[in-house]
């Protein structure tokens, strides 16, 4: 069997479900909010703040920026919530607003920020990391590896970073990602592939050159 160097969290596959198959749990709050109940909006914020923050943290790489972008997200949601149509799931719509907040943030921060990121990378880069991690959760090395993966993710252009974050980290299905990013499903698939290939090169020291010996079985697994 192919032994992945890190175990894939089971929750990832568990919540990758088809987007529109059950009643949207947010609709009741949305109706109340549209009827003028601001507490319903606050309840929507509380229900989704952690997921939005998590997504933005993965997109932006810094907690402070993610928090600011999360605030932007909910302010924009309040501002443009009337554009939400019931054909889409609310969480998909919210992801779209959040993704736009992340991309706008990136753009407005501009070169100054890029320069600072480069400085940070220079300072932290080149440090020797263990090449054979045992597991992501159980050690400080796991934290270092996550930091490193996050840092390399930051190096991808947003058009590639967004779909791979939504698929491999947030666990969304291709169709939902297509809706969030407003691109064709085929584009989502090819960008995920390109993003992973680019990351594989950037994370070369963490990705073994040769697969395990029992390759064939692994392939069929």
């Amino acid at each position: 069997m192919t032994q992945p160097i890190l175990n894939r969290p089971s929750s990832l596959t568990a919540h990758r479900v088809a987007p529109v198959e059950s009643v949207d749990p947010d609709l009741e709050l949305i109706d109340r909010w549209r009827d003028g109940d601001s507490q319903a909006f606050e309840a929507l914020v509380r229900r989704h703040e952690r997921r939005v923050f998590g997504l933005l943290l993965r997109m932006l790489g810094s907690r402070e920026e993610a928090e600011d972008a999360a605030q932007d997200t909910f302010l924009n949601l309040h501002r443009h919530g009337h554009r939400f149509r019931r054909e889409a799931r609310f969480s998909t719509f919210l992801y779209r607003v959040a993704m736009n907040a992340a991309l706008n943030r990136r753009r407005s921060l501009g070169r100054r920020r890029a320069h600072m990121d480069a400085l940070v990378r220079e300072q932290s880069g080149g440090s020797a990391l263990p090449s054979v991690p045992r597991g992501p959760e159980d050690s400080a090395a796991g934290g270092e590896i996550r930091d490193r993966v996050q840092q390399e993710l930051q190096g991808l252009p947003p058009a590639l970073r967004a779909p791979v974050v939504l698929f491999d980290i947030e666990g969304l299905a291709y169709a939902e990602i297509a809706e969030v990013l407003q691109v064709a499903e085929g584009t989502v698939k090819s960008r995920i592939h390109r993003a992973r290939k680019a990351l594989k090169e950037r994370l070369r020291d963490l990705v073994p050159d040769e697969g395990p010996a029992e390759e064939k079985e692994g392939v069929l697994a």
Partner: peptide, 21 residues
């Protein structure tokens, strides 16, 4: 095999408690 390792590395970000901050 390398793609799978990359996917697993990305997956490690999903399992960390991102919203702690």
């Amino acid at each position: 095999s390398q793609l799978r390792s990359t996917i697993d590395l990305l997956g490690s970000l999903a399992s960390s408690s991102a919203s702690a901050g």
